[in-house]
Simulated scan of single mutants.
Amino acid sequence: MKPVVILFFSLLAPLLLWSQQSKITSLLSVNEGLSQGMIFDVHQTRDGFIWIATKDGLNRYDGYRFEVFTNDSFDPFSIVSNEVWSIYEDQRGWLWLASPGGLDVYLPNTGRFFHLLPDLPGTNGDMVSFAELPDGTIWLTVNGKCWKIEGATEGLKMAAEAERAFPALQITEIKLADVLFSSVLLTQKGNVLLGSNQGLFQVSKTDSVPYPIALAGRPVNVFGQDQQGHVWIEAIAPDLTGLYLREDCGGLWLWEEEHASLRTIPCFPYGRHKFGPEGALWTWASMDITFTKWKPGACVYNKLHKTQRQPSAFKPYGCWGRASRSAPAYPGEANGKCWQAIQKVQFVMHTRGLHQRRVSGFDGNLRSRYH
């Protein structure tokens, strides 16, 4: 049932832009050029553009206007699908775009989309994740499947020079019997971890074959690593459709990479999780409509400490990033402006440090918030 829920709550999803400079709220909607209100993902690239993946068009916002990318059947270098699920920027500044039409790579210096994998599985891309190795190799999981993509740097450059929209890269599908892959993570020690319906796997550095390391037989999603090096894992449904099987006291773990050990986080609130700027852990709990900021270090030592927990309608599903043209490729708020995707709401609270600002009366459009 999760795809239905995600699509329902993603309908008319707005975006927020915050800073600490003033108290101005601006509304951006289809009237200002946003192509569509169902937003799947948001990402800010290192050149400062805000990219918005929607049900009908990939949007690029420069702070003044939207440019919308859609499929053109007469242009082989146009985006493969109007519906885009997920946006990932690699160390080269290229955008990897997962959609029902397949996997595209956008090269900013060419303004063109190159097509790698056709017809990705799933309905809304909720289970999409990317990881990039130092040599540029890309790992991708999409709704149970997993691929390793090598040779992208030279292959895509050659394709651009040769005017070929379908580059020949070394793409390997990773398969294990009865295993559905939910997520991929490159750890701080350079290991590739895979969440799956059969537990946590680590990829061998010699032959790229995943082998189990923890939580055998448990459907899990690996969703991040904190600043202390702990890998965070959450329980999911066996068919990877959601988190509905988690209980209030159980279903969240820490993998100690240094010692290859597992630790349970007891009684951590049920919900969806995301690491935000400065290492904070945010939880969206749909059951009681709360958005909570936690200190990961305190959770590790079984001293649950939340910095804020307020009624809200946030869902940590979009991008954490600055809204400056000089923004880096990593999440940050150095200039005090931050974009996030949230769900259809009645009122919203966002907390930064000791400052709280409450915004009410959302109607499912795109808003920028300065405070």
Rank of each mutant, 00 (worst) to 15 (best):
Q202A: 09
R352L: 06
W232Q: 01
S326R: 03
T290Y: 03
K274C: 02
A323G: 13
P266M: 06
E333R: 10
K306C: 11
A235E: 10
G101F: 01
A280M: 08
V84G: 12
L180K: 15
N191K: 14
V300S: 02
S286W: 08
R322A: 06
C338P: 06
P210H: 00
V142E: 09
C249D: 09
S182M: 02
Q227N: 14
T307V: 14
G321L: 07
A177F: 01
V30P: 02
A216S: 09
I6S: 08
Q91K: 05
T206V: 15
A285P: 01
D135A: 05
N197L: 13
D363W: 14
Q308I: 15
A285F: 03
V209A: 11
P3L: 11
T292Y: 10
N124L: 13
Q308W: 15
P219M: 08
K145R: 09
L245A: 04
G250D: 00
A285W: 05
C299M: 12
D75A: 09
D41W: 14
R46I: 07
I213K: 09
P331C: 03
G318I: 04
V128L: 15
S81V: 04
L169Q: 00
L180D: 12
K344G: 09
L194P: 06
D119A: 10
K175R: 08
F268K: 01
H43L: 04
G136N: 09
R325G: 07
V209Y: 13
W85H: 02
N71C: 13
A162T: 12
T351E: 07
G63A: 11
W255M: 10
G251N: 04
I236R: 12
G125Q: 07
G111P: 05
Y64Q: 13
A260R: 11
P269I: 11
L27G: 11
S204P: 03
L107V: 10
D288H: 02
S324C: 09
S196K: 00
W94Q: 05
F347C: 03
W339L: 05
A177G: 05
E257T: 10
M127F: 14
G101E: 05
N59M: 06
G332D: 07
F9L: 06
P118H: 14
S78A: 06
T54G: 10
V105P: 00
G251F: 03
R218F: 14
L200I: 15
L27M: 13
L281T: 00
V30L: 08
S196C: 07
F130A: 04
S129G: 10
Q356R: 14
L304V: 11
Q356V: 12
D248N: 08
F268S: 01
R352M: 12
N109R: 13
V222N: 11
F201M: 02
K175G: 06
P134R: 04
H43M: 07
P212M: 04
S19P: 02
Q356P: 08
M1V: 15
D126S: 15
L180V: 12
